[in-house]
């Protein structure tokens, strides 16, 4: 049961959703892109949203409260994974049909909770944080930049440099993206370090890892994949694979998989035989 959810529902906030619609309706499910720590819908709006719509999928990107163009920046400090789950479910329920969820990094936690309760056609987790909590990634980060890591541990927002997030991006573009990073809730950051309850997921799930990821350590990526009884598919690029130079290649991998699994019968609400044509008989006319 979830009595805490019933007793303490998060307060509603304005949530930013950016959409890109395909020129013609192919009957594909919508895809909802969910950004990670400190990121907003903007990181998907840069390249992926338009390219996804061109592949025939209605594409949506959201920002959690206190992120990007959403409201609630002043109350961000109280947000937890459960708050983000609330925001994610609010956006899902506002879409015209069940979306394929594509979640990056920290957003894997609320996305996995959403997938456990919501019949999404499929889920894609990009460089996902394991539900068991970050280990190797933290140690690596501490070795590389002890002072910055300490600041994070006392409540500061995790600090990223261009080297952390991008494998191959010119300095000006990288700086432009970095300048858009926002604050993160310390409570949500602490939750990345502690184990979470794992709930069963029925939808097919793809785990994607970036070959040059300097944020999520390979060991943590493998643990996240193992929790989902799968192994990670590796793609080129750094942690922010939707912004790095190889974004197109990564998106192709993701959408090719969604082509196969996100629209298969049984995964989505099946397009099985619909109502028989009895309407005429009910009106007393020969069928």
């Amino acid at each position: 049961m979830r009595p805490w959810e019933w007793a303490f529902p998060p307060r509603g906030e304005h949530l930013e959703v950016i959409a890109a619609q395909p020129a013609t309706d192919h009957g594909h499910p919508p895809i909802l892109f969910v950004p990670g720590l400190g990121h907003g819908a903007w990181c998907y709006a840069e390249h992926w949203l338009g390219a996804t719509a061109e592949r025939g999928y209605p594409a949506y990107a959201m920002s959690f409260r206190g992120h990007g163009g959403s409201g609630g920046h002043t109350r961000l400090g109280r947000a937890t994974t459960r708050t983000y789950l609330h925001d994610l479910m609010q956006v899902i329920a506002s879409l015209p049909a069940p979306p394929v969820l594509v979640a990056h990094s920290m957003a894997a936690l609320p996305a996995r909770l959403a997938l456990a309760r919501y019949p999404a056609p499929a889920g894609v987790l990009l460089a996902p944080v394991p539900a068991g909590g970050l280990r190797q990634s933290l140690t690596n980060q501490f070795r590389r930049r002890p002072a910055a890591t300490m600041r994070t541990l006392v409540g500061g927002t995790a600090e990223f440099t261009a080297v952390d997030l991008f494998a191959d991006l010119d300095a000006a573009t990288a700086a432009r993206h970095l300048s858009r990073l926002g604050r993160e809730s310390p409570l949500a950051q602490y939750e990345l370090m502690v184990p979470h309850r794992i709930e069963p997921i029925d939808s097919p799930v793809l785990v994607v890892g970036a070959e040059a990821d300097r944020v999520l350590a390979p060991a943590d990526l493998d643990r996240a994949a193992a929790e989902l009884h799968t192994s990670a598919v590796m793609v080129p690029g750094g942690h922010d694979m939707m912004l790095d130079r190889s974004w197109g290649e990564v998106l192709t991998t993701v959408l090719d998989w969604i082509d196969l699994h996100g629209t298969a019968a049984g995964a989505a609400l099946p397009g099985a035989t619909k109502l028989p044509p009895v309407a005429q008989a009910l009106e007393g006319r020969p069928p």
């Binding site: 959810e5 007793a7 509603g12 609330h86 479910m89 609010q90 329920a93 309760r117």
Partner: peptide, 11 residues
Amino acid sequence: PFTQFPDFPMP
């Protein structure tokens, strides 16, 4: 919170 469908919250 409890009245709504758990997989389709009210706005």
